[in-house]
Simulated scan of single mutants.
Amino acid sequence: MSISKDILDQSFKGKSIVELDDLVHLIEDHFGYRVQLTRKDEESSLTDEQKKKLTSIIFKDPDVIYQLSQAEKDRQKGISTYSDNEEEFAKLLTEIAHDN
């Protein structure tokens, strides 16, 4: 995704200062995304329930399951492509197997 200099010039024509809000509107209008800004030091705006729901959706995705099973096979062959922490990886695989 990119924005040409011409589009930038048109969007900010006549402005000597471009505000953050102007950039957000440009991204939303040009790319069709909804943008929400939060400070780095603030916690996620997702509730625990939303996080659980998203996690459930992700780990029910067949492509994610396939990638994790491939990573497990690679790990058994001595190739670590997922994580440097064997214990955490094993725990993740156990949790996924339990949920499915």
Rank of each mutant, 00 (worst) to 15 (best):
M1H: 04
S4P: 00
D6K: 09
D9F: 10
S11P: 00
F12I: 04
G14E: 05
V18L: 09
E19N: 12
L20D: 13
D22I: 02
D22Y: 14
H25P: 00
D29I: 04
D29Y: 01
F31N: 03
V35G: 14
Q36L: 08
L37T: 07
R39Q: 13
D41H: 04
E42F: 10
E43N: 12
E43P: 08
S44N: 01
S45Y: 11
S45T: 09
L46P: 01
T47S: 13
K51W: 05
K51E: 12
K52T: 08
K53P: 07
L54S: 08
T55Y: 12
T55P: 04
S56I: 00
I57T: 08
D63Q: 00
V64I: 06
I65W: 12
I65C: 06
Y66I: 06
Q67S: 13
L68Y: 01
L68R: 00
S69M: 15
S69L: 14
Q70V: 10
K73D: 11
R75C: 05
R75P: 02
Q76C: 07
Q76A: 15
G78Y: 00
I79G: 03
S80F: 11
S83N: 03
D84C: 14
E88Q: 11
K91I: 01
L92W: 00
L93H: 01
T94A: 15
I96D: 00
A97C: 10
A97R: 13
